[in-house]
């Protein structure tokens, strides 16, 4: 079985994250970039299939700038067999739809029995790319699974719905996303870190993805001339109108409890009509 895990490099949530106020795009120099934690959980689901059946092939795929290779190496050190990096300057600042189109094209090149991803990234939090990929590939999506069981030919799992969970299944090939409640990811071991450097990472440019699936019409509307040099500066059918930084919250009153703090707090809540 061939499992492709989609990974995304995101700014570390443990640090201050910044947007560029002129472009509205992520300021990648503001902090460290890491593999999104939810992707490590998706990878863990794949690696457990591999633990049980060594013939399983686990490929990690990302789209991102040069530095995103680090995210792939981290995944390789955890136990994935190879990486695919969709890398093309024309994809910088791609919106969710364009990202999904490129990933779907990449998945067609790579081939797969099942694709695993996180249910939403910690930066954009849109949670829409895997469903877009599923639509491009006309495949079922088992989204937001808290547990997944992958067998030859099928995947079943428990989906976190709004008022409870659902038991769901689909025949393979299929796309699956997992939530924060799914398997805790393993840490890379020493051998994993050493061998990760020697594992193959294939780079795919937009040209490698094949023009048939990346026509301009499919990829973000009439304003686009397509990928590659000379492409329209607008990178999707969505545009950022403005980006403003919220003024930082100021600290208010701080008191040390001397036995009366609870009463003062109750008075504060009443005075501000909060109770």
């Amino acid at each position: 079985m061939k499992i492709v895990v989609l990974v995304k490099q995101v700014p570390d949530t443990a640090e201050e994250r910044k947007l560029d106020l002129t472009t509205g795009l992520l300021d990648r120099d503001a902090g460290d970039s890491v593999v999104d934690e939810i992707n490590e959980r998706a990878l863990e689901v794949a690696l457990r299939v591999k633990d049980a059946n060594k013939s399983t092939e686990v490929v990690v795929m990302t789209m991102g700038p040069d530095g995103a290779t680090q995210a792939l190496r981290k995944a390789l050190s955890m136990g994935a067999d190879s990486g695919v990096h969709i890398l093309d300057d024309s994809l910088a600042g791609a919106d969710t739809k364009r990202t999904a189109a490129a990933l779907a094209a990449g998945l067609k090149v790579t081939g797969f029995d099942i694709v695993l991803a996180g249910n939403e990234s910690t930066d954009g939090r849109g949670g829409v790319v895997p469903a877009m990929v599923a639509e491009h590939l006309a495949l079922p999506l088992l989204g937001s699974l808290v547990s997944a069981e992958i067998t030859e030919g099928a995947v079943r799992g428990v989906r976190q719905g709004e008022g409870g969970t659902l038991n769901v299944h689909a025949a393979l090939p299929a796309i699956v996303t997992v939530t924060e409640s799914s398997a805790e990811a393993r840490f890379p071991n020493f051998k994993g870190i050493l061998t990760a450097k020697r594992k193959p990472v294939t780079t795919l440019s937009v040209a490698d993805l094949g023009s048939a699936d990346l026509g301009s019409a499919e990829l973000g509307g009439a304003g686009l001339t397509g990928f590659g040099p000379g492409a329209d500066a607008r990178v999707g059918s969505t545009v950022i109108v403005s980006t403003t930084e919220r003024t930082a919250r100021a600290a208010g009153r701080k008191i040390v409890d001397d036995g009366t703090a609870a009463t003062e707090l109750a008075e504060f809540l009443v005075a501000n009509r909060l109770v």
């Binding site: 919106d95 969710t96 739809k97 999904a100 189109a101 249910n119 954009g124 939090r125 849109g126 949670g127 829409v128 790319v129 895997p130 469903a131 877009m132 599923a134 639509e135 491009h136 999506l141 989204g143 937001s144 989906r159 976190q160 719905g161 709004e162 019409a217 499919e218 973000g220 509307g221 999707g236 059918s237 969505t238």
Partner: peptide, 24 residues
């Protein structure tokens, strides 16, 4: 809704109709 179901419908609809998706 940006719910588990809502966003999957929205994502597929955006691909299907050639529309643009503004999420969350």
């Amino acid at each position: 809704a940006n719910s588990v179901d809502g966003r999957e419908v929205a994502a597929r609809l955006a691909v299907r109709t050639g529309g643009g998706l503004l999420a969350d």
